[in-house]
Amino acid sequence: MNLLTDSILVLLILASFLLLSSSRLSNCIKTVALQGMMVGVLPLAANDSLTCRVTAIALVIAGMKGIVFPYMLFRTLRESTTIKELKPYVGYTASMFAGVVSLVASFWLDSRLHLPVAASSRLVVPVAFSMMLTGIFLIVGRRTAVNQVIGYLVMENGIYTFGLAIVRDVPLLVELGVLMDMFMAVFVMGIAIYRINREFDHIDSDQLNTLKG
């Protein structure tokens, strides 16, 4: 069981690195879909005693993160002309380097915090931290609005993984509420991008900089 969990965690990290280094938005969406799917099934691998409830929630979450959200993002992308992140604020090599630094920082942070870990693998918390950091990095370091939404999803993946590691049982109703909010968030952001695209003829959020002071 533990080997399976660890391999999923390594794949999650690899997905983060892939996101940091690729410029084509459609590839980024596919990668984040894969990452979401793996995050969704993580509790199935980590848990020794699978109950019906855990399996059902895991499948719903994997479905949302792996299929529904990416589908919505692809639809947004189809409405717009931008298919590539042209000039990110931080270059791809530098982004990879930042990814490595954040991974190291996450391991260091985990060794300092002594969190009461409920999960079977010690790797879960640092991987979760590094996903959160990667997500924030993508939001700050990329120009394209779609990429910022992807960053938001990566951050949410990290927070979800973190929750798996330290909280044994989040109440079902809260879990569903969070999922619904996320769905609404991606939906609203999608409409927002559509509107921005119609108004400005592009989805580069760096043009959104007239309001100052």
């Binding site: 949410e156 927002a192 921005i196």
Partner: peptide, 20 residues
Amino acid sequence: TPGALEAMWKYLMMCSVGVA
């Protein structure tokens, strides 16, 4: 309007990340 869209995007991103 362009200004309103800009404000909305900033609000959405910053508050979503903060609340996360």
